[in-house]
């Protein structure tokens, strides 16, 4: 499968990754190579084989509905560049 420069640009934008014009070409080539390599898997006949979701045979573990966490605002905010009155403060985002 091959990926063009426009697709790379779009993916980069969706992922909020800045990528220079010169890097688009090589990146497209690299991604295409990776996808082609992975595509080899489709040669395996998986007819009737259920999708494997885990290497160990366990069910999704569940927690009981009990409050056991939270009340750690200082820790939550510790790495934030800017805070005020217990809020995270970020550049204005509004429609």
């Amino acid at each position: 499968m091959s990926i063009d420069k426009a697709t790379v640009e779009k993916i980069a934008h969706l992922a909020r990754i800045e990528i220079s014009e010169e890097a688009l070409g090589p990146m497209a080539e690299e991604l295409s190579n990776i996808l082609t390599w992975v595509e080899q898997l489709s040669k395996v006949d998986t007819e009737g084989v259920p999708a494997m979701t885990s290497v160990v045979d366990v069910r999704l573990p569940m927690r009981e509905d009990v409050v056991t966490d939270g009340n750690c605002r200082d820790a939550i905010l510790a790495n934030a560049p800017k805070t005020d009155h217990g809020f995270f403060v970020v550049p204005k985002v509004i429609e």
């Binding site: 800017k82 009155h85 809020f87 995270f88 403060v89 970020v90 550049p91 204005k92 985002v93 509004i94």
Partner: peptide, 10 residues
Amino acid sequence: QHPEYTYVDL
């Protein structure tokens, strides 16, 4: 809350 910033409560 502020003219230049958005305040976020999680």
